[in-house]
């Protein structure tokens, strides 16, 4: 039977080679990521081209965008709340009707201005208001919410996007690109996959499957070591014998020198 070591070393090799940039010295352990998804057996783990966010999309009607232009927002997508408390005095029915209208218009203009730049995929780091969601769906912008700041940072790096901390239309340089953004279901866990294949920043993700969190964590640690081993292999492809064999031989040789020095000093 093939052991887990055999299985994962192959997966790591595949993932690393896929993520290896044209200029090999640029390889970084960050290029190979792991995503842990509970369920199935470890032998069902697989390598994915690109990046994965283990979260469902916020816009259920959109599940796939080819060659997306991605805007990344680090702030909540919400019509700006006023800094100070204000009292709105509504005198008649018409004003009451129009009260929400202006907020709606604001959200509409905001999303429209973003859509006009050509954005069709959005990653948001905060909450998204219902009204914005409505317009996002209307302008067919696939939206993913990422709660972790680090994850957001990583995504930005991978997609070469700039995270915006203010609402408003991004300039084209701030947009990230990918080949494909797609909603997939892995073991009933909805995930968004960003595939990207550029010369300078390729990425691969090893999707780990397993029955318990402990098991997944163990494998993740082992994979990190494996990727590091590959990094060192890229630096220097030479190997010595393992399991202490080299150390034993060297010990033997060093002791011989020791003796030699002792004799030569005496005479």
């Amino acid at each position: 039977m093939r052991s887990a070591g055999d299985f994962f070393s192959k997966k790591i090799a595949e993932a690393c080679i896929q993520a290896l940039p044209d200029k090999v010295s640029n390889f970084d352990v960050e290029f190979v990521r792991t995503a842990k998804i509970l369920g199935a057996s470890v032998n069902d783990s697989f390598v994915l081209k690109g990046l994965i966010v283990t979260r469902n999309v916020e816009t259920p009607s959109l599940s796939e965008v080819k060659n997306p232009k991605i805007a990344v927002y680090g702030c909540p997508l919400d019509t700006q709340a006023a800094e100070t408390k204000g009292t709105v005095l509504i005198k008649n029915a018409e004003e009451l009707l129009n009260y929400n209208k202006s907020e709606e218009d604001h959200a509409h203009n905001l999303i429209k201005s973003i859509a006009d730049v050509g954005v069709n995929c959005m990653i948001v780091g905060g909450t998204i208001s219902d009204i914005c969601l409505h317009y996002l769906e209307r302008y067919r912008i696939m939206t993913v919410r990422v709660t972790s700041k680090f994850e957001l940072k990583r995504l930005c790096k991978a997609l070469q996007a700039t995270a915006l901390v203010r609402l408003g239309a991004p300039v084209p340089e701030e947009l990230g690109t990918a080949d494909l953004a797609q909603l997939r279901e892995i073991g009933s866990q909805k995930c968004v996959v960003f595939e990207r294949d550029s010369a300078d920043c390729k990425l691969s993700t090893i999707v780990l499957r397993g029955s318990t969190h402990n098991l997944l964590d163990d494998i993740e640690r082992a994979i990190d070591d494996g990727v590091n081993a590959y990094k060192n292999l890229v630096k220097d492809p030479r190997f010595v014998a393992g399991a202490g064999a080299t150390e034993i031989v060297r010990n033997f040789l060093l002791r011989k020198i020791d003796l030699f020095l002792a004799i030569s000093k005496r005479t």
Binding site: D6, D225, R238, F239
Partner: peptide, 29 residues
């Protein structure tokens, strides 16, 4: 003088697999 193996092509999956195995196998027991 103790180099016994050298990876010729770092893009060859089989070759790389062999090298990574020694590093990760003990950790997955």
């Amino acid at each position: 003088s103790h180099i016994y193996y050298q990876v010729k092509d770092i893009r060859n999956v089989d070759e790389v697999t062999k090298c990574l195995k020694s590093s990760i196998s003990p950790k997955l027991q």
